[in-house]
Amino acid sequence: MDLSSINPVLLIASVMVSATPILLAAIGELVVEKSGVLNLGVEGMMITGAVVGFAVAVSNTSPGMGFVGAALAGALLSLPFALLTQYLMSNQVATGLGLMMVGLGLSSLIGKPFEGMKAPPFPKVEIPLLSDLPIFGKMLFSHDIMVYFSVALVVAVWAFLKYTRAGLILRAVGEAHDSAHALGYKVRHIRILAILFGGACAGLGGAYLSLVRVPQWTEGMTAGAGWIALAIVVFASWRPGRVAVGAYLFGGVSVLQLNLQAAGADVPVALLSASPYLITILVLVIISARGAHAAPASLGRPFHASR
């Protein structure tokens, strides 16, 4: 095994790239869960975002348009979930699973004509001055705009939840929907908005996979990234800052295992390629063993105004 072939600067830079899709999806799901809704369909929305983003970007040769399309597609796909769980009061777990399957089917249907194509290049944005720094410049400040956007989004969500009145209302709806309702807040509307935001974020995350990370469309390409995003929200104890930590940790694991595979490490390939999932399980166990769950109190509970 030749570990010297792994360049630490490029490693960190590629960790940021590989963490971004999970980070985007996870921060969206965080907002959804903070409003008291458990949407298990992240995987479905992500892969739909991936295919729609890719299709739009290829047709218009504009990655930017692709991302917009992906966000819209993710939000649109989450709409039936929102209506079903909020107005028809269906079981959130089952509906989320349905959303996942619809998304997987839909994506491979849309994606058929786009297989084997190449995504239009997405320019890197070198931040002036900072990107000229030795080592750190290449590592942290010469990425494409979505990487910065994802970090900014985490900060924005954190500030929104912590400092704004709307964020307080969102949290109130997630913690005690009956009290929030009694105070006159529209529980359903707030939750639907949160679900749509989560869908849009998952769509963006998916599009980042198909437009930047890979960059092409293959069937089932998210390969559980949406589920890892869900796990990261639990791992993060529903805190935006920790979501970022979690996402970069998992991005790191998946990049490292690829690098180890390439470097010909003396570890079975099956173990390496399963390692992101195994580590997710391990982390979940550690988090749940500590017992500090901090889950929103109304998470997964249906709301009906008559009670």
Partner: peptide, 20 residues
């Protein structure tokens, strides 16, 4: 396309939950 059937099956679950 084969994926159409997958979508078809997923939709069935969705409609079932809605019909519930």
């Amino acid at each position: 396309p084969g994926a159409a059937i997958q979508l078809f099956q997923g939709m069935m679950l969705f409609f079932l939950l809605a019909a519930d």
